[in-house]
Design a protein around this nucleic acid. Structure first.
Lengths: 111, 111
DNA sequence: AAGGTTGTTCGATGAATATCGAATGACCAT
DNA sequence: ATGGTCATTCGATATTCATCGAACAACCTT
């Protein structure tokens, strides 16, 4: 495990990569959970997959420029990358507004 | 070849499916080319792939609810599905606004 | 009917992806 | 140091995907 995670430069991130990263239901759910702007610990997403699988999805999100990873002691803190908005204005807002996973839908009584 | 193409009901189309369909550069280009609202003949996209490959991508776009296929004589006419806007308001506008393929569409089409 | 045009379908293939369990590495507490 | 917790990496596997050429089907023209 490295102390420093590799994050791509935002200008090198392609739209198709972001869309691909968002096209997996679990990853979409993770991004939606981060949409409040709060950081989340790695384990705070109770994803129905093995730790190794979750790690894989986190890596995809990181390499697509969607999230940052930061180490804090033994925990791993995840957050949305703020520069994403400058690179693709409005994209994340639009997608998350339409995502069934979004927190608001849960609050207003989804299924 | 069937006279009637299978198009999914819009309400059954999932966001992740749409994002996945848009996450391929060639498919994104095709959708961008259709964004003017005009119909296009199947062969009007000079895609750098074999006909069978193009047919595959067209099928993906059709099954994701993005486009309609219509037969006209021996030709095949493709167009964006208008109901998509009602299902996912603003999604396509946002994605296409950010797509690099838009520049090419602007040059040859204008707006 | 015979032939040409236009997409689709059918294998086949190599690359990418999602998933898991096991092993490993980094860090903290004792 | 020893052990525990947390996340990543490593193999392995099954699935999906993009791609092609070949064969086929639908349609129009002659």
């Amino acid at each position: 495990m490295q102390e420093h995670y590799a994050h791509p430069e935002m200008k090198t991130v392609q739209l198709a990569d972001v869309l691909h990263a968002l096209s997996d239901p679990l990853r979409l759910r993770i991004v939606a959970a981060l949409a409040t702007g709060d950081e989340r610990g790695w384990g705070d997403f109770d994803a129905p997959v093995a730790p190794s699988t979750l790690s894989h999805h986190m890596k995809v999100l990181r390499q697509a420029g969607l999230v940052t990873h930061r180490r804090e002691g033994t925990r791993c803190i995840v957050a949305l990358r703020p520069e994403l908005e400058a690179r693709f204005p409005g994209l994340l807002d639009t997608v998350l507004r339409l995502a069934p996973e979004r927190a608001a839908a849960d609050r207003t009584g989804g299924e």
